[in-house]
Design a protein around this nucleic acid. Sequence first.
DNA 1: AGATTGAACGATTTGTTGAACGTTCAGAAA
DNA 2: TTTCTGAACGTTCAACAAATCGTTCAATCT
Lengths: 205, 205
Amino acid sequence: MAEKDTVREQIIEAAKKRFSHFGYAKTTMAEVAADCSMSPGNLYRFFPGKLDIAEAIASAAHEEHLKELRKLIQAPGKSGRDRLRDFFFEELRHTYHMLEKNPRIHEMASVIACERPQYSNWMLANERKILVEIFDEAERRGEFRTHDKEFTAEMFQSATMKFHYPQLWSKLTLPKLERELDGVLKLLVDGLYAQAAHHNAGQAA
Amino acid sequence: MAEKDTVREQIIEAAKKRFSHFGYAKTTMAEVAADCSMSPGNLYRFFPGKLDIAEAIASAAHEEHLKELRKLIQAPGKSGRDRLRDFFFEELRHTYHMLEKNPRIHEMASVIACERPQYSNWMLANERKILVEIFDEAERRGEFRTHDKEFTAEMFQSATMKFHYPQLWSKLTLPKLERELDGVLKLLVDGLYAQAAHHNAGQAA
DNA sequence: AGATTGAACGATTTGTTGAACGTTCAGAAA
DNA sequence: TTTCTGAACGTTCAACAAATCGTTCAATCT
């Protein structure tokens, strides 16, 4: 079974090279198989289909991204505001640089988003877990309290959609996007602190 | 010249019927011309091209929409929070119902957005003027003060993008969208009031 | 037996050709 | 002259054919 995983990795590596060089649509299963010195049919012992290879590549990148996000926010002594800022700026810069470095990735993302609509939601949900952790920690430090953290995380994701898929709805440069994200986050986080203050006042009364 | 405007209106009406019945791509200039009892060539004395007819239709609808927005916020004695709520809810419901009632409109909007990238920006800028008016009025009433109203309006637009083009990036139902918009607006507006309080405290110190 | 192949299948894409489209403009009509 | 027409222009679209692709599976190899 360890053998099987090695072959899976080999296939993923070969496909990743082809996909990013020539694009998802332009690479054939036969080519990927040849790169791995096997027949096209044999690929299907390791993956249900072509799209699942792309999904495996995306999932690996997503795990890396989550790891990076978790690393950023785990520095002790950081305020909730700073953690949220770091989180969303990493998000923006990560996808921006990824798509700038290799536009082919956009094709892969589009295909997956179109054929597997739940997949994007799954990624968003994973990132929301980290947001909830940030809210938990901020509450523990007495910075602000949110009565429904999962919902608040969803609101933050809604409000920062434009920065999550930056080149999908605007051709703004990174500095302009960062300036906008900064402004939006400032309002949102001020909102959090304000709601907490209001809530505390309500409790006190 | 009044005659010319009448003909323009006639063309716009004929095109509007065709576009919403059969779609933008599927209606030909010859058909619109025939509906107006004129030759295809004659259309070009009134509009530079097919796309400009679509733009004229869109502009008329946009003007109607702006009028509706201005009417909503001009009720005296309303708080800034309520005005902002009414503004963005009207925005959401307006586009949602429009696209639900007639999906062909989405085709027209896509074509214009694709071929005339500045046009969307122009519409956003018009709506921003109304937002700035809301901020002005709120400042006059001493509710909150924003040091750069144009920028703040842009931030509100950024954060509510998802609700401006609802069926473009999610297939959520209107109630779910309204619940989300409510949550986002609550955070944003709390943020405004908080920034104002902070600003006042800074001035007082 | 299990692992692998590669020809075969239906679906999708590509290439091509002819029709249809948006647009123009020389000339007819007013 | 000014207003309007409709044939003509290059481009885009639609439909059909051929080729190619993702996927399957009976046959082959280990």
